[in-house]
Design a protein around this nucleic acid. Structure first.
Length: 592
RNA sequence: GGCCCCGUAGCUCAGCGGAUAGAGCACCUGAUUCCUAAUCAGGGGGUCGCAGGUUCAAGUCCUGCCGGGGUCGCCA
């Protein structure tokens, strides 16, 4: 009943061998039958002196087996010493099983990586199941700012990661093109329309969007309609102006995202929920049948005074049944739907499209909204669909350590586009992932362009460029040893004997496990940190060659050894490139 | 007041229930006729906010406090 284990994933491979050994012990009657192996794990020990990999098998089985942990560990050790890949097995501490592998085992990893090519690290965790990743979803009322860029980079990397691990990923953007904010946008655009016709509009009134980015919208309206809209009542021009403005804003947002190489599969219109049949009404009705929608009153919110607040009976969703602290309103006093009501219908729509897994990215300011959305999905799917909401904390923009001042003009943030234009897409995408999503992040405009080891973006990209540079340099001595040469692919890997080379291979061997862990936890930042570690191992080995010429990758007098080292370097470059691809960063061949 | 997030080295932060808690910066010492020194090696630095609990095992999970941030009906 042991699982086969992914042969590209040494952790999984060793895990399956341990399970085999446990089952053999059971078959002999040495271990009792009916043990639960679910918590048996294989992981690299924190202290390298404890070996290459360690297992907790004996510790987690001791109680059920009614045996001492160290005794079980010893039985396992006796079995595993027969494994030709295993050099040493130790029972340590309370009952850990520490395993050391022969060099040939690690050398074989290089060959496996080269054979797997771009598929190295792929896994089938998702079994092709559809997952919906909703990210960015910024109101189409203006350009993206830097904070939005974090959600964009995170969401896109997570989508890549899930696609890499066997999910059918849909990248989705929820367009809030209904409600008061897009009406305000329309009025703001209409003002720019009058301006484009030559009128002096003076200061933009408070409450409207003052940004210059609406000027082109006004001009386009003037070009298309001339002065014909001026004499119409607002209810006549507003829908048309609104549609034009939303379309223009969305085009701008898409363009900003494209600058980061981010492209969504679906832009889902909030307005479409009520355009034909009223999906919001349907959703509310469905919940009403489940007894989760009722007429009731809410208490006045605490913590701040709201002059407009009035006590009234209203339509409520019973989100307290799902852990929310208060039931949530579905209808405004004017009879229209609340944002939340439409959002419930939107998630209902996602479920109807067959998604079994939903992921949403939220900005920090929406964290308080999280519980009611989870409640909605739980209610609508009867708990059968999982929804994970990742909250991205704030981004603090600095330049050489000094906070970057926001523009004085009200409403004008430092836009994402300005930052991307200044520093490029790679630093933005990498640095936005060089923190956990729920920790605040400092983004320094000067630091990310620094060509030094202090800049993680450069450090990792440079490692890849260095690896590629070896293949350029080797042309002088061994022209036939190209990256694709069979002499490299089939090199005698037993020549990779230096401790640093083996260390590098161990890092490469960890990649599939890092990918799996990051995918399961929905934490793409783990890739960024892993890549930094891998780059460090490579830079270390590179520099060793400075002091010890016999460790240089190119050995002019020894083509066989050179080929083996080139195989390692190619594997290294390949994993760096694969990891960078997942987080959406280029792997350059040179840094000049 | 309720809810959410955070609290780990002087600073910025990793840390997947496992063993003696790590990295970068900063500070100190060293390596360059050599595949890119755009790099690397070594050193000092810690009551993991506090107190309980669960567990063979807690920085990690649970509860309560303390401190910082966010948020709190008809904005989205």
């Amino acid at each position: 009943m042991s699982q086969t284990g992914n042969p590209m994933n040494v952790y999984a491979l060793v895990h399956s061998r341990i399970l085999d050994a446990l089952e053999a012990l059971q078959a002999e009657g040495t271990l009792p039958a009916g043990l639960d192996f679910a918590h048996v794990e294989v992981a690299p020990p924190r202290d390298a002196a404890h070996g290459d990999l360690a297992s907790n098998a004996a510790l987690v089985l001791a109680k059920a087996a009614k045996m001492k942990p160290r005794d079980i560990a010893q039985l396992l050790a006796n079995k595993l010493t027969a494994d030709p890949d295993i050099e040493r097995v130790d029972v340590a501490g309370p009952g850990f099983l520490n395993l050391g592998f022969r060099p040939a085992f690690w050398q074989g990893v290089v060959s496996a990586i080269l054979k797997a090519g771009a598929g190295y690290g792929r896994a089938d965790l998702g079994f092709g199941e559809p997952v919906n990743v909703e990210y960015v979803s910024v109101n189409p009322t203006g350009p993206l700012h830097v904070g939005h860029g974090r959600g964009a980079a995170f969401g896109d990397a997570l989508a890549n990661l899930l696609a890499f691990t066997g999910y059918a990923v849909t990248r989705e953007y929820y367009v809030n093109d209904a409600g008061a904010q897009v009406d305000t946008l329309a009025r703001s655009a209409f003002l720019r329309y009058r301006e484009a016709l030559g009128e002096d509009i003076g200061e933009i009134p408070a409450g409207l969007y003052p940004g210059d980015y609406l000027k082109p919208v006004g001009k386009a309206l003037a070009d298309a309609h001339g002065p014909s809209l001026l004499n119409l009542p607002e209810e006549r021009w507003l829908p048309m102006v609104r549609a034009a403005a939303v379309t223009a804003m969305l085009a701008m947002i898409k363009d900003d995202l494209a600058a980061l190489d981010i492209r969504h599969d679906i832009f889902f219109s909030e307005r479409s929920l009520t355009a034909g049949k009223d999906e919001v009404a349907e959703t509310i009705e469905e919940l009403r049948k489940k007894g989760l929608v009722f007429q009731g009153r809410l208490e006045k919110p605490k913590g701040h005074d709201d002059a407009d607040w009035e006590d009234r009976e209203q339509t409520l969703f019973k989100s307290t049944a799902f852990g929310d602290d208060v039931d949530r309103a579905l209808m405004k006093s004017d009879g229209s739907y609340t944002y939340f009501a439409a959002d419930m219908a939107y998630h209902h729509n996602k479920l109807a499209r067959g998604f079994r897994h939903l992921i949403n990215m939220f900005g920090a300011d929406h964290a308080g909204y999280l519980t009611r959305v989870k409640a909605a999905v739980a209610a609508l799917s009867d708990g059968k669909v999982d929804l994970d909401i990742k909250v991205c904390q704030l981004v603090r923009l600095t330049r050489a350590g000094e906070p970057v001042r926001m523009s004085k003009r009200a409403g004008a943030f430092v836009t994402l586009r300005e930052v991307v234009d200044e520093v490029g897409r790679d630093p933005v995408r990498f640095m936005m992932l060089y923190r956990k999503n729920d920790a605040p992040l400092d983004f320094d405009l000067a630091k990310v362009l620094e060509q030094s080891k202090d800049n993680p973006v450069f450090y990792v990209q440079y490692a890849h460029a260095r690896a590629r540079s070896v293949f350029r340099n080797v042309r002088d001595t061994f022209p036939h040893l190209t990256a694709e040469a069979p002499e490299v692919a089939n090199a005698d890997l037993s020549l990779l004997r230096d401790a640093g080379e083996i260390e590098l291979i161990k890092k490469l061997a960890a990649f599939p496990q890092v990918v799996e862990g990051a995918a399961r936890a929905h934490e793409p930042h783990r890739l960024a940190f892993y890549l930094y570690d891998l780059a460090a191992a490579f830079h270390t080995q590179w520099t060793k060659g400075n002091e010890s010429p016999h460790l240089r990758f190119i050995q002019a007098h020894d083509g066989t050894l050179t080929a083996a080292r080139l195989a390692l370097i190619r594997a290294n470059a390949q994993v760096l490139a694969a990891g960078l691809a997942i987080i959406g960063v280029h792997a350059p061949d040179e840094m000049r």
